[in-house]
Design a binder for these strands. Sequence first.
DNA 1: TGTATTAGAGTACATTTGTTTTATTTTTGA
DNA 2: TCAAAAATAAAACAAATGTACTCTAATACA
Lengths: 205, 205
Amino acid sequence: MNHPENHNLSDAQNELYEWIKSYIRDFNHSPSIRQMMQAMGLRSPAPIQSRLKHLQQKGFISWQEGKARTLQIVDEVLGGVPIMGSVAAGGLIETYSDVNENLDFSEILKKKNIFALTVNGDSMIDACIADGDMVLMEKITDSYSLRNGTIVSAMVPGLGTTLKYFSKKNGKIFLEAANPLYEPIELNLDEVIIQGKLLAVWRRV
Amino acid sequence: MNHPENHNLSDAQNELYEWIKSYIRDFNHSPSIRQMMQAMGLRSPAPIQSRLKHLQQKGFISWQEGKARTLQIVDEVLGGVPIMGSVAAGGLIETYSDVNENLDFSEILKKKNIFALTVNGDSMIDACIADGDMVLMEKITDSYSLRNGTIVSAMVPGLGTTLKYFSKKNGKIFLEAANPLYEPIELNLDEVIIQGKLLAVWRRV
DNA sequence: TGTATTAGAGTACATTTGTTTTATTTTTGA
DNA sequence: TCAAAAATAAAACAAATGTACTCTAATACA
C-alpha cells in the first residue's frame, strides 16, 4: 500500500508480506518461519525463506540473522497513518494527490520527556486549542532557551497550572491567553515554573 | 511510572522491567532471556526467569510459553503518552493531578480504514481546524449512516475535495464551512462522494 | 545465633527456530 | 515443445532459547 515498489512483489511474496504485517499487528511480535509456513499452507520452511529473502532484498523487511522472531517491517512506521494528500478547507480547489507519506506519530512518541494534558477552558481558543483537547508537552528544564511566543504550561506556585503564550521581557515573564477575554499575567522569574512547551495538539472527535 | 503497583517491584525486578522496555523501544522485538541475563550482569538464566515470573504475576509482562522472544509489556500502550492531568486554559484554577492514564493512539491506529489529510485553508477555523493541521479520517462506505453535523471530506466530481460540516435535508446534501466567510454548498445526493468522516485532529507545533 | 527464605550459579535438557542441502515438481520463457 | 529457472517438499543440522533442576551463597527473621 504505502511502499513504492509494492508492485515488484509476486503474489506469494505479497501474501506473505501482508500476513506478517497483520500478525505483528495482532501479537506485537514477529511470527516464526514455521508459523508463516503453516499460515501459507506449506509443508516446508524453504519457500518461506526464499520469499523472506526476496522481501528483504526489495527492502520490505529486515531481521537479525540467526535470531528468532526478530523480523521487522522496514517502512511500517509505528503509529503511522497513510497521508492521502491534502484537502481544501476553503473551497473546492484541491483534490487528493497520491502522495505516499505517513503521518508519523512514532517520532514524537519516542521522546521520553513528553507528557499529555487535557485542556480545560477556552483561553487558547484563538490558537485553535479547544476545551477538551489533549496537548502534548515537552518537559522544560531551563526556561532560558524558550522563545517568546511559545505556548507553555506554566505553574504558579499556590495558584495552579495554566496553558499560555510565553514571553520574557525586562526580567519579567508574561503569560498571555489566546483569547481577548483574558488579561495577560505578569510575573517575576521566580514566581513561575515553566513545566513544558507545546509540541502537538490532539483532538478526538 | 505508569503502573499502579510499580512500588511492589524489587530493585532487581524494576531494573529488569525498565531494561526490557527500553530494549523493545530500541529494537521493536523482545529480548531473549540470555540477553537479559547479560544485560543484568548475571551468569545464569535462573534469576531472570524468577524475575520474569514475578513481573508476570504482578501483571507487568506476559509472554507465550515456550516461544522465543514473545515477551510483551502488558500495559505499555503502543503509542501511549502519560497523561499528567489537566491544565487550565482559562485562568489559574487547575493543577496537575496524578491521574495515571495514557493518551492512547493505538486505539485509533489499529483501524485499517483510516487515512490522513493535510488541511489547506481556514474554512474550518471555527471548528478549531487550522491551516496545516492533519485530520485523521475514517473511510465512509455509506453516507446514509452519517449524522448531520459530522465533519467530512467530500469530493464533488470535477471540482475537488473539501472538508466541511455534513448535513442532509429533503434529499439534498449541504456542505457547510465553519467560517462565516464561506457560503454553504447545496448538492444533490449523486453530485457528491463522501470519502471520510473526521476522527481526530493532529497538529505539530 | 541458627534456621528459613530467597537469590544466584551452574548445568542440563527439550523445544523452537533459522538455516542448509538435495531431490522433485511446477512454472517460465524462448 | 523443451530447457532453464524457480518453487516446493523433505530431511537434517546447528544455534538459539525457554525451562527445569541442583547446589551454593546471601539475606531475612525470630
